[in-house]
């Protein structure tokens, strides 16, 4: 098995600025997504994910411009997500240079949109973002449900069933975020990662909760993830991408070094 597991740094961008903060030495403007994307590219990131969390519609043009500038300088796959609701949004981002488009809330409100998008643009560029939260008690069989609105709004959808459905509808990849773990730095929710990874044929990206390099190893080895996504451990310079890759490789994981 020579296919490498992937490390994907994630940029949360609001009105053209990376908002979770980035702390690279020697970078001129810590909030510029283009500079940060270039830096991660130089470090050997396998892909970059750009999540647009811009609230106002007008600032969307800034996002398109950012994506265009990144795509002109960074020659690794670029996933763009946030606020994608119509095929027109997908077309705009692909034209700007995105390679994959992540669909989140719109998949829950209108699952047919995922089918339509996959048929029109091909499954290879459709990623469905799944925000899951554990709803079972400690002593019960674990069960997770889909939540929207940053983990505040329950949908009643079973996360594993939902993952299967989205893969059937044509998602080429799933970006799984544990809403219990996001921002906690205590590690991925390995239970839901393993359950979904075993349930679908398409690749699964684990996200939410990374605090150290052992968490990345566990996401792949215990969670069965095909790729691991992280933001803050890389942004604040705690670890570099090469640190993470070397560590994972030392733990027997196939990596692109």
């Amino acid at each position: 098995m020579t296919l490498a597991k992937r490390i994907i740094p994630c940029l949360d961008v609001d009105a053209g600025r990376v908002v979770k903060g980035v702390n690279f030495v020697g970078i001129r403007d810590a909030g510029d997504p283009v500079e940060i994307a270039k830096r991660y590219n130089q470090q050997g990131a396998d892909e970059i994910t750009f999540l647009d969390i811009t609230a106002s519609h007008e600032d969307r043009d800034t996002t398109v411009e950012m994506v265009e500038r990144i795509a002109g300088e960074v020659f690794i796959p670029l996933t763009v997500g946030g606020g994608i609701r119509r095929c027109e949004d997908i077309r705009t981002m692909l034209n700007a240079g995105a390679d994959k488009i992540s669909i989140n809330t719109a998949a829950v409100t209108n699952p047919e949109f995922v089918r339509e998008a996959a048929e029109r643009f091909g499954s290879q560029c459709i990623v469905v973002a799944i925000d899951a939260k554990r709803v079972s008690a400690e002593d019960e069989t674990p069960r997770w449900e889909i939540f929207t609105h940053g983990g505040r709004r329950p949908t009643g959808l079973d996360a594993v069933e939902w993952a299967r459905k989205m893969a059937d509808y044509g998602a080429g990849e799933l970006l799984l975020t544990s809403m219990d773990r996001d921002g906690t730095k205590v590690g991925f929710d390995l239970g839901v990662t393993r359950a979904i990874s075993d349930a679908v044929d398409v690749p699964v990206i684990a996200s939410g909760g990374v605090g150290n390099l052992d968490h990345l190893v566990a996401g792949v080895r215990e969670g069965g993830a095909d790729a691991v996504l992280a933001a803050s451990i890389f942004h604040f310079g705690e670890y570099t991408i090469p640190d993470a890759k070397r560590y994972m490789a030392e733990h027997g994981i196939e990596m692109r070094l």
Binding site: M1, L3, S197, D201
Partner: peptide, 15 residues
């Protein structure tokens, strides 16, 4: 795969 891991299709990533 021989070690029981599910092999994903599409073949996606760096090989």
């Amino acid at each position: 795969s021989p070690d029981g891991e599910r092999l994903k299709v599409p073949h996606m990533g760096w090989n």
